[in-house]
Design a binder for these strands. Sequence first.
DNA 1: CAACAGATCTTGAATCATTCAAGAAAGTCC
DNA 2: GGACTTTCTTGAATGATTCAAGATCTGTTG
Lengths: 145, 145
Amino acid sequence: MLTTPDVETALRGASLRVTRPRTAVLAAVYAHPHADTDSIIGAVRASLGEVSHQAVYDVLRALTTAGLVRRIQPSGSVARYESRVGDNHHHVVCRSCGAIADVDCAVASTPCLTASHDHGFTIDEAEVTYWGVCPGCSTAPARSS
Amino acid sequence: MLTTPDVETALRGASLRVTRPRTAVLAAVYAHPHADTDSIIGAVRASLGEVSHQAVYDVLRALTTAGLVRRIQPSGSVARYESRVGDNHHHVVCRSCGAIADVDCAVASTPCLTASHDHGFTIDEAEVTYWGVCPGCSTAPARSS
DNA sequence: CAACAGATCTTGAATCATTCAAGAAAGTCC
DNA sequence: GGACTTTCTTGAATGATTCAAGATCTGTTG
Protein backbone atom coordinates (compact mmCIF):
# COMPACT_ATOMS: atom_id res chain seq x y z
CA MET A 1 0.00 0.00 0.00
CA LEU A 2 1.13 3.45 -0.84
CA THR A 3 0.78 6.21 1.72
CA THR A 4 -0.30 9.73 0.93
CA PRO A 5 3.14 11.15 1.78
CA ASP A 6 4.66 8.70 -0.71
CA VAL A 7 2.37 9.95 -3.41
CA GLU A 8 3.08 13.55 -2.55
CA THR A 9 6.80 12.92 -2.68
CA ALA A 10 6.42 11.37 -6.11
CA LEU A 11 4.46 14.36 -7.34
CA ARG A 12 6.92 16.89 -5.98
CA GLY A 13 9.76 14.85 -7.41
CA ALA A 14 8.22 15.36 -10.81
CA SER A 15 7.82 19.09 -10.24
CA LEU A 16 4.06 18.77 -10.16
CA ARG A 17 1.85 20.69 -7.82
CA VAL A 18 0.31 18.62 -5.09
CA THR A 19 -3.46 18.79 -5.19
CA ARG A 20 -6.13 16.54 -3.80
CA PRO A 21 -7.23 15.29 -7.22
CA ARG A 22 -3.67 14.48 -8.16
CA THR A 23 -2.83 12.52 -5.05
CA ALA A 24 -6.08 10.62 -5.36
CA VAL A 25 -5.58 9.82 -9.04
CA LEU A 26 -2.01 8.67 -8.56
CA ALA A 27 -3.01 6.55 -5.58
CA ALA A 28 -5.85 5.06 -7.64
CA VAL A 29 -3.50 4.11 -10.46
CA TYR A 30 -1.21 2.42 -7.95
CA ALA A 31 -4.13 0.62 -6.38
CA HIS A 32 -5.78 -0.49 -9.61
CA PRO A 33 -3.23 -1.40 -12.27
CA HIS A 34 -4.54 -1.31 -15.84
CA ALA A 35 -7.69 0.53 -14.81
CA ASP A 36 -9.44 2.54 -17.48
CA THR A 37 -10.21 6.22 -17.03
CA ASP A 38 -13.75 5.59 -15.89
CA SER A 39 -12.66 3.22 -13.14
CA ILE A 40 -10.11 5.74 -11.99
CA ILE A 41 -12.74 8.44 -11.88
CA GLY A 42 -14.83 6.11 -9.75
CA ALA A 43 -11.98 5.37 -7.37
CA VAL A 44 -11.10 9.02 -7.04
CA ARG A 45 -14.67 10.00 -6.30
CA ALA A 46 -14.90 7.26 -3.71
CA SER A 47 -12.08 8.88 -1.78
CA LEU A 48 -12.67 12.56 -2.44
CA GLY A 49 -16.30 13.00 -3.24
CA GLU A 50 -17.21 14.72 -6.47
CA VAL A 51 -14.35 15.37 -8.88
CA SER A 52 -14.82 16.40 -12.47
CA HIS A 53 -13.91 13.88 -15.12
CA GLN A 54 -12.02 16.64 -16.85
CA ALA A 55 -9.74 16.99 -13.84
CA VAL A 56 -8.99 13.28 -13.95
CA TYR A 57 -8.20 13.44 -17.66
CA ASP A 58 -5.93 16.42 -17.07
CA VAL A 59 -4.18 14.76 -14.17
CA LEU A 60 -3.66 11.52 -16.05
CA ARG A 61 -2.12 13.41 -18.90
CA ALA A 62 0.14 15.37 -16.57
CA LEU A 63 1.23 12.20 -14.79
CA THR A 64 1.84 10.44 -18.08
CA THR A 65 3.88 13.33 -19.41
CA ALA A 66 5.87 13.44 -16.20
CA GLY A 67 6.56 9.73 -16.49
CA LEU A 68 4.87 8.79 -13.24
CA VAL A 69 2.33 6.56 -14.95
CA ARG A 70 2.19 4.83 -18.28
CA ARG A 71 -0.73 4.91 -20.62
CA ILE A 72 -1.53 1.73 -22.50
CA GLN A 73 -4.25 1.19 -25.04
CA PRO A 74 -4.59 -2.19 -26.74
CA SER A 75 -6.54 -2.13 -29.99
CA GLY A 76 -10.24 -1.86 -29.38
CA SER A 77 -9.81 -0.82 -25.78
CA VAL A 78 -10.10 2.52 -24.06
CA ALA A 79 -7.04 4.10 -22.46
CA ARG A 80 -5.71 2.37 -19.38
CA TYR A 81 -3.04 3.43 -16.94
CA GLU A 82 -0.47 1.68 -14.81
CA SER A 83 2.14 2.75 -12.32
CA ARG A 84 4.95 0.40 -13.31
CA VAL A 85 7.21 2.57 -15.38
CA GLY A 86 10.76 2.37 -16.55
CA ASP A 87 11.04 -1.40 -16.25
CA ASN A 88 10.39 -2.47 -19.81
CA HIS A 89 7.62 -4.92 -19.18
CA HIS A 90 4.84 -5.89 -21.51
CA HIS A 91 1.21 -6.99 -21.46
CA VAL A 92 -0.99 -9.94 -22.21
CA VAL A 93 -4.49 -9.03 -23.26
CA CYS A 94 -7.42 -11.44 -23.20
CA ARG A 95 -9.24 -11.42 -26.51
CA SER A 96 -12.41 -12.46 -24.79
CA CYS A 97 -12.79 -10.26 -21.72
CA GLY A 98 -10.08 -7.65 -22.23
CA ALA A 99 -8.23 -8.49 -19.03
CA ILE A 100 -4.63 -7.30 -18.93
CA ALA A 101 -1.70 -8.81 -17.08
CA ASP A 102 1.92 -7.82 -16.85
CA VAL A 103 4.62 -9.88 -18.51
CA ASP A 104 8.28 -9.38 -17.86
CA CYS A 105 10.02 -9.69 -21.16
CA ALA A 106 11.83 -12.99 -21.46
CA VAL A 107 14.63 -11.46 -23.48
CA ALA A 108 17.03 -8.99 -21.90
CA SER A 109 15.94 -5.41 -21.47
CA THR A 110 14.89 -4.07 -24.84
CA PRO A 111 14.05 -7.23 -26.75
CA CYS A 112 13.09 -6.62 -30.29
CA LEU A 113 14.83 -3.29 -30.50
CA THR A 114 17.19 -5.15 -32.79
CA ALA A 115 15.12 -4.15 -35.79
CA SER A 116 16.28 -0.66 -34.88
CA HIS A 117 17.07 1.50 -37.83
CA ASP A 118 14.63 0.20 -40.37
CA HIS A 119 13.22 2.86 -42.66
CA GLY A 120 15.44 5.48 -41.07
CA PHE A 121 13.30 5.71 -37.97
CA THR A 122 15.01 6.51 -34.70
CA ILE A 123 13.42 3.99 -32.41
CA ASP A 124 13.30 4.58 -28.68
CA GLU A 125 10.87 1.98 -27.45
CA ALA A 126 9.60 -1.44 -28.35
CA GLU A 127 6.17 -2.20 -26.99
CA VAL A 128 4.99 -5.78 -27.01
CA THR A 129 1.39 -6.84 -26.69
CA TYR A 130 0.57 -10.52 -26.35
CA TRP A 131 -2.89 -11.56 -27.43
CA GLY A 132 -4.55 -14.63 -26.06
CA VAL A 133 -7.20 -15.91 -23.71
CA CYS A 134 -7.10 -15.62 -19.96
CA PRO A 135 -7.61 -18.58 -17.61
CA GLY A 136 -11.13 -17.54 -16.75
CA CYS A 137 -12.24 -17.22 -20.35
CA SER A 138 -10.54 -20.38 -21.57
CA THR A 139 -12.54 -22.55 -19.19
CA ALA A 140 -15.82 -20.69 -19.47
CA PRO A 141 -17.14 -20.47 -23.03
CA ALA A 142 -17.15 -17.01 -24.55
CA ARG A 143 -20.01 -14.93 -23.28
CA SER A 144 -21.08 -13.99 -26.79
CA SER A 145 -21.73 -17.50 -28.07
CA MET B 1 -0.76 -3.36 -58.76
CA LEU B 2 -3.59 -5.68 -58.01
CA THR B 3 -6.19 -6.38 -60.67
CA THR B 4 -9.88 -6.60 -60.03
CA PRO B 5 -9.96 -10.33 -60.78
CA ASP B 6 -7.23 -10.85 -58.18
CA VAL B 7 -9.32 -9.09 -55.61
CA GLU B 8 -12.40 -11.06 -56.56
CA THR B 9 -10.50 -14.29 -56.28
CA ALA B 10 -9.33 -13.32 -52.84
CA LEU B 11 -12.87 -12.54 -51.77
CA ARG B 12 -14.29 -15.77 -53.11
CA GLY B 13 -11.44 -17.66 -51.53
CA ALA B 14 -12.62 -16.34 -48.20
CA SER B 15 -16.23 -17.28 -48.90
CA LEU B 16 -17.25 -13.67 -49.09
CA ARG B 17 -19.73 -12.36 -51.59
CA VAL B 18 -18.22 -10.21 -54.29
CA THR B 19 -19.74 -6.77 -54.31
CA ARG B 20 -18.54 -3.49 -55.70
CA PRO B 21 -17.88 -1.95 -52.29
CA ARG B 22 -15.91 -4.98 -51.22
CA THR B 23 -13.65 -5.13 -54.22
CA ALA B 24 -13.05 -1.40 -53.95
CA VAL B 25 -12.27 -1.54 -50.24
CA LEU B 26 -9.92 -4.47 -50.57
CA ALA B 27 -8.16 -2.84 -53.51
CA ALA B 28 -7.86 0.36 -51.51
CA VAL B 29 -6.25 -1.43 -48.58
CA TYR B 30 -3.76 -3.04 -50.95
CA ALA B 31 -3.04 0.30 -52.59
CA HIS B 32 -2.71 2.30 -49.39
CA PRO B 33 -1.07 0.29 -46.62
CA HIS B 34 -1.76 1.55 -43.09
CA ALA B 35 -4.53 3.83 -44.27
CA ASP B 36 -7.14 4.83 -41.74
CA THR B 37 -10.82 4.25 -42.32
CA ASP B 38 -11.43 7.75 -43.55
CA SER B 39 -8.72 7.50 -46.20
CA ILE B 40 -10.14 4.20 -47.34
CA ILE B 41 -13.59 5.72 -47.62
CA GLY B 42 -12.07 8.45 -49.75
CA ALA B 43 -10.26 6.00 -52.01
CA VAL B 44 -13.36 3.88 -52.41
CA ARG B 45 -15.51 6.86 -53.29
CA ALA B 46 -12.91 7.98 -55.81
CA SER B 47 -13.37 4.73 -57.68
CA LEU B 48 -17.05 4.01 -57.15
CA GLY B 49 -18.76 7.27 -56.48
CA GLU B 50 -20.79 7.59 -53.33
CA VAL B 51 -20.51 4.72 -50.86
CA SER B 52 -21.78 4.88 -47.31
CA HIS B 53 -19.21 4.96 -44.58
CA GLN B 54 -21.21 2.28 -42.87
CA ALA B 55 -20.61 -0.06 -45.80
CA VAL B 56 -16.89 0.54 -45.55
CA TYR B 57 -16.93 -0.16 -41.84
CA ASP B 58 -18.88 -3.35 -42.44
CA VAL B 59 -16.59 -4.47 -45.22
CA LEU B 60 -13.46 -3.78 -43.23
CA ARG B 61 -14.81 -5.82 -40.37
CA ALA B 62 -15.75 -8.67 -42.69
CA LEU B 63 -12.33 -8.62 -44.33
CA THR B 64 -10.61 -8.49 -40.97
CA THR B 65 -12.65 -11.40 -39.65
CA ALA B 66 -11.92 -13.36 -42.81
CA GLY B 67 -8.22 -12.69 -42.36
CA LEU B 68 -7.79 -10.84 -45.65
CA VAL B 69 -6.67 -7.65 -43.97
CA ARG B 70 -5.25 -6.83 -40.59
CA ARG B 71 -6.43 -4.07 -38.35
CA ILE B 72 -3.82 -2.16 -36.40
CA GLN B 73 -4.36 0.63 -33.96
CA PRO B 74 -1.40 2.18 -32.18
CA SER B 75 -2.25 4.09 -29.01
CA GLY B 76 -3.76 7.44 -29.77
CA SER B 77 -4.45 6.58 -33.38
CA VAL B 78 -7.61 5.63 -35.19
CA ALA B 79 -7.97 2.17 -36.72
CA ARG B 80 -5.74 1.44 -39.70
CA TYR B 81 -5.72 -1.48 -42.07
CA GLU B 82 -3.08 -3.32 -44.05
CA SER B 83 -3.06 -6.18 -46.48
CA ARG B 84 0.07 -7.97 -45.31
CA VAL B 85 -1.26 -10.82 -43.24
CA GLY B 86 0.13 -14.05 -41.95
CA ASP B 87 3.77 -12.96 -42.10
CA ASN B 88 4.43 -11.93 -38.55
CA HIS B 89 5.75 -8.48 -39.22
CA HIS B 90 5.58 -5.47 -36.96
CA HIS B 91 5.35 -1.71 -37.10
CA VAL B 92 7.31 1.41 -36.36
CA VAL B 93 5.19 4.40 -35.47
CA CYS B 94 6.42 7.97 -35.57
CA ARG B 95 5.63 9.78 -32.35
CA SER B 96 5.59 13.06 -34.17
CA CYS B 97 3.51 12.56 -37.30
CA GLY B 98 2.00 9.14 -36.75
CA ALA B 99 3.56 7.61 -39.85
CA ILE B 100 3.69 3.83 -39.84
CA ALA B 101 6.21 1.57 -41.55
CA ASP B 102 6.56 -2.19 -41.66
CA VAL B 103 9.36 -3.94 -39.85
CA ASP B 104 10.21 -7.56 -40.36
CA CYS B 105 10.96 -9.01 -37.01
CA ALA B 106 14.68 -9.50 -36.56
CA VAL B 107 14.16 -12.60 -34.48
CA ALA B 108 12.74 -15.75 -36.02
CA SER B 109 9.04 -15.99 -36.60
CA THR B 110 7.27 -15.39 -33.31
CA PRO B 111 9.84 -13.40 -31.37
CA CYS B 112 8.84 -12.66 -27.88
CA LEU B 113 6.33 -15.47 -27.66
CA THR B 114 8.81 -16.95 -25.23
CA ALA B 115 6.99 -15.32 -22.36
CA SER B 116 4.19 -17.64 -23.34
CA HIS B 117 2.30 -19.04 -20.41
CA ASP B 118 2.56 -16.26 -17.92
CA HIS B 119 -0.50 -15.80 -15.77
CA GLY B 120 -2.11 -18.85 -17.33
CA PHE B 121 -2.99 -17.00 -20.50
CA THR B 122 -3.01 -18.99 -23.72
CA ILE B 123 -1.11 -16.66 -26.00
CA ASP B 124 -1.59 -16.87 -29.74
CA GLU B 125 0.06 -13.71 -31.00
CA ALA B 126 2.81 -11.32 -30.07
CA GLU B 127 2.37 -7.86 -31.52
CA VAL B 128 5.32 -5.51 -31.45
CA THR B 129 5.06 -1.77 -31.89
CA TYR B 130 8.23 0.26 -32.16
CA TRP B 131 7.95 3.89 -31.18
CA GLY B 132 10.30 6.49 -32.54
CA VAL B 133 10.67 9.35 -34.94
CA CYS B 134 10.58 9.05 -38.70
CA PRO B 135 13.28 10.50 -40.97
CA GLY B 136 11.10 13.42 -41.99
CA CYS B 137 10.28 14.45 -38.44
CA SER B 138 13.79 13.96 -37.09
CA THR B 139 15.24 16.56 -39.46
CA ALA B 140 12.35 19.00 -39.33
CA PRO B 141 11.61 20.23 -35.81
CA ALA B 142 8.32 19.06 -34.33
CA ARG B 143 5.43 21.03 -35.71
CA SER B 144 4.10 21.80 -32.25
CA SER B 145 7.13 23.61 -30.86
C1' DC C 1 -33.29 -17.79 -67.14
C1' DA C 2 -36.19 -16.56 -63.07
C1' DA C 3 -37.08 -16.61 -58.28
C1' DC C 4 -35.85 -17.22 -53.56
C1' DA C 5 -33.28 -16.50 -49.18
C1' DG C 6 -30.04 -14.36 -46.90
C1' DA C 7 -26.27 -11.34 -46.90
C1' DT C 8 -25.02 -6.63 -47.72
C1' DC C 9 -25.68 -1.64 -48.56
C1' DT C 10 -28.12 2.96 -47.51
C1' DT C 11 -29.84 6.28 -44.55
C1' DG C 12 -30.03 8.46 -40.36
C1' DA C 13 -29.38 8.60 -35.65
C1' DA C 14 -26.97 7.39 -31.29
C1' DT C 15 -23.02 6.31 -28.31
C1' DC C 16 -19.12 7.32 -25.75
C1' DA C 17 -14.30 8.37 -24.86
C1' DT C 18 -11.88 12.29 -25.16
C1' DT C 19 -11.02 17.17 -25.89
C1' DC C 20 -12.00 22.33 -25.98
C1' DA C 21 -13.06 26.61 -23.66
C1' DA C 22 -13.75 30.05 -20.07
C1' DG C 23 -13.95 31.27 -15.57
C1' DA C 24 -13.35 30.02 -10.52
C1' DA C 25 -10.31 28.10 -7.11
C1' DA C 26 -6.15 26.55 -5.22
C1' DG C 27 -0.98 25.89 -4.85
C1' DT C 28 3.69 27.84 -4.81
C1' DC C 29 7.06 31.27 -4.17
C1' DC C 30 8.44 35.62 -2.24
C1' DG D 1 -0.11 37.12 3.58
C1' DG D 2 -0.25 38.26 -1.60
C1' DA D 3 0.50 37.89 -6.31
C1' DC D 4 1.04 34.89 -10.12
C1' DT D 5 0.34 30.66 -12.41
C1' DT D 6 -1.42 26.30 -12.61
C1' DT D 7 -5.20 23.43 -11.92
C1' DC D 8 -10.13 22.32 -11.27
C1' DT D 9 -15.21 22.99 -12.49
C1' DT D 10 -18.83 23.37 -15.57
C1' DG D 11 -20.80 22.70 -19.84
C1' DA D 12 -20.52 21.90 -24.52
C1' DA D 13 -18.34 19.93 -28.75
C1' DT D 14 -15.85 16.59 -31.49
C1' DG D 15 -15.27 12.51 -34.02
C1' DA D 16 -14.61 7.61 -34.66
C1' DT D 17 -17.42 3.87 -34.43
C1' DT D 18 -21.70 1.42 -33.78
C1' DC D 19 -26.87 0.49 -33.92
C1' DA D 20 -31.12 -0.09 -36.35
C1' DA D 21 -34.51 -0.70 -40.05
C1' DG D 22 -35.51 -1.12 -44.58
C1' DA D 23 -34.02 -1.44 -49.55
C1' DT D 24 -30.98 -3.86 -52.72
C1' DC D 25 -28.01 -7.13 -54.49
C1' DT D 26 -25.44 -11.78 -54.71
C1' DG D 27 -25.20 -16.69 -55.09
C1' DT D 28 -27.86 -20.58 -55.69
C1' DT D 29 -31.65 -23.52 -56.88
C1' DG D 30 -35.71 -24.94 -59.78
